Amino acid sequence: MKKWGQSSSDQNEFVFPELNQQVNEKEIYLAVYNLTQRVNRMLVLILKELGIQAKIRTYEARHSYATMLARAQVPLAFISQGLGHSSLTTTEEIPGFS
């Protein structure tokens, strides 16, 4: 965050400069999609370098994050917010949360 994020006291500001108040929803979607693809490609390279033969992408990382928090008995509302879910029901539908 310190290295690539932009610091602002405005809570409506985006953290990363690729996104700003002037871009539309389609541009936001494309920027997030492209970043996710880039992160997934980097994860593949990291796993290969470490000799780990597993498929780990941002999808699996999100669920691992949620699972670890649940096992640590973190409140479901906090986990749901961290995942960006609009309701607790969405979080409860994740396998292993019910």
Score class of each variant (00 low, 15 high):
residue 41 R to K: 12
residue 41 R to F: 09
residue 2 K to D: 03
residue 18 E to R: 00
residue 40 N to T: 09
residue 50 L to K: 15
residue 47 L to H: 07
residue 21 Q to W: 12
residue 79 I to S: 02
residue 65 Y to P: 02
residue 90 T to W: 08
residue 19 L to N: 10
residue 5 G to S: 14
residue 88 L to Y: 07
residue 11 Q to D: 07
residue 31 A to V: 12
residue 82 G to I: 01
residue 81 Q to D: 13
residue 33 Y to C: 03
residue 88 L to N: 09
residue 63 H to V: 03
residue 48 K to W: 01
residue 76 L to Y: 09
residue 10 D to F: 00
residue 43 L to Y: 14
residue 14 F to L: 11
residue 36 T to M: 08
residue 57 R to P: 02
residue 55 K to I: 14
residue 52 I to S: 05
residue 24 N to V: 04
residue 9 S to T: 06
residue 69 L to G: 02
residue 37 Q to K: 15
residue 26 K to E: 11
residue 91 T to C: 04
residue 91 T to I: 08
residue 80 S to P: 02
residue 98 S to F: 02
residue 36 T to C: 08
residue 23 V to E: 00
residue 88 L to P: 00
residue 50 L to E: 13
residue 92 E to T: 12
residue 10 D to T: 00
residue 70 A to F: 14
residue 63 H to I: 05
residue 14 F to H: 13
residue 91 T to Q: 05
residue 89 T to I: 12
residue 28 I to D: 03
residue 64 S to D: 11
residue 85 H to V: 08
residue 58 T to A: 13
residue 3 K to S: 05
residue 1 M to W: 03
residue 78 F to W: 08
residue 14 F to G: 03
residue 93 E to D: 12
residue 61 A to C: 15
residue 32 V to W: 00
residue 76 L to V: 15
residue 27 E to C: 01
residue 7 S to Y: 06
residue 18 E to D: 01
residue 34 N to M: 09
residue 73 Q to L: 13
residue 5 G to K: 11
residue 33 Y to R: 14
residue 81 Q to R: 15
residue 52 I to A: 04
residue 69 L to S: 06
residue 75 P to M: 00
residue 23 V to M: 11
residue 94 I to M: 03
residue 83 L to I: 07
residue 29 Y to D: 06
residue 32 V to P: 00
residue 34 N to E: 14
residue 88 L to T: 08
residue 79 I to F: 05
residue 38 R to Y: 09
residue 55 K to W: 13
residue 12 N to M: 04
residue 35 L to Q: 05
residue 12 N to R: 06
residue 42 M to V: 14
residue 65 Y to I: 04
residue 7 S to W: 04
residue 2 K to H: 09
residue 54 A to K: 15
residue 12 N to G: 09
residue 83 L to V: 05
residue 12 N to P: 01
residue 67 T to G: 11
residue 90 T to C: 08
residue 54 A to F: 08
residue 26 K to S: 09
residue 77 A to D: 07
residue 11 Q to P: 12
residue 78 F to T: 10
residue 91 T to L: 04
residue 54 A to S: 15
residue 58 T to V: 15
residue 39 V to Y: 13
residue 3 K to L: 06
residue 95 P to N: 06
residue 28 I to E: 07
residue 25 E to H: 11
residue 24 N to C: 08
residue 75 P to I: 00
residue 88 L to I: 11
residue 31 A to T: 12
residue 51 G to I: 02
residue 64 S to L: 12
residue 86 S to T: 14
residue 28 I to H: 03
residue 91 T to Y: 06
residue 70 A to Y: 14
residue 97 F to P: 01
residue 29 Y to C: 02
residue 31 A to S: 13
residue 83 L to T: 02
residue 13 E to Y: 03
residue 23 V to K: 15
residue 81 Q to S: 14
residue 50 L to P: 02
residue 67 T to I: 10
